[in-house]
């Protein structure tokens, strides 16, 4: 592999590595929020939003769905939205 190929190979990996760092940071943030032992929607809903965003990143960048046209592009997004909405609804009505 020459240097040009190496650059072409390495460049796209960088955004996926950045996504990895974001995923790890959001996970640790979620865990720290859990450690506060606080309850209520002010904690629960942001934590859920972090989880849905993390799922979106995995779908787009690691599964490669960002570059897919049509219905398949939306599979993970729709899946995240449906249980996400139901969980939100259930937590709002429980509080």
């Amino acid at each position: 592999m020459n240097s040009t190929d190496d650059t072409e190979y390495r460049y796209p990996i960088r955004p996926c590595t950045l996504v990895y760092v974001v995923l790890m940071a959001l996970t640790v943030t979620t865990w720290l929020l859990g450690k506060t032992d606080m309850t209520g929607l002010n904690i629960a809903l942001p934590v859920l939003a972090f989880a849905l965003f993390k799922g979106l990143l995995i779908g787009d960048y690691y599964m490669g769905l960002k570059g897919v046209r049509g219905l398949w592009r939306w599979v993970i997004i729709i899946w995240l939205a449906v249980p996400g909405s139901m969980i939100t609804w259930a937590f709002i009505n429980a509080s």
Binding site: E8, M63, K66, G67, R69
Partner: peptide, 28 residues
């Protein structure tokens, strides 16, 4: 060449990566 998610940024496909059958299974 590139990472799976990013190659897709340049060339849009109609189907997700991998065998379509696994995606039906994943949906289920």
């Amino acid at each position: 060449m590139d990472a799976p998610g990013l190659k897709a940024l340049a060339v849009k496909n109609n189907y997700p990566p991998g065998d379509l059958a696994i995606w039906i299974f994943i949906l289920a």
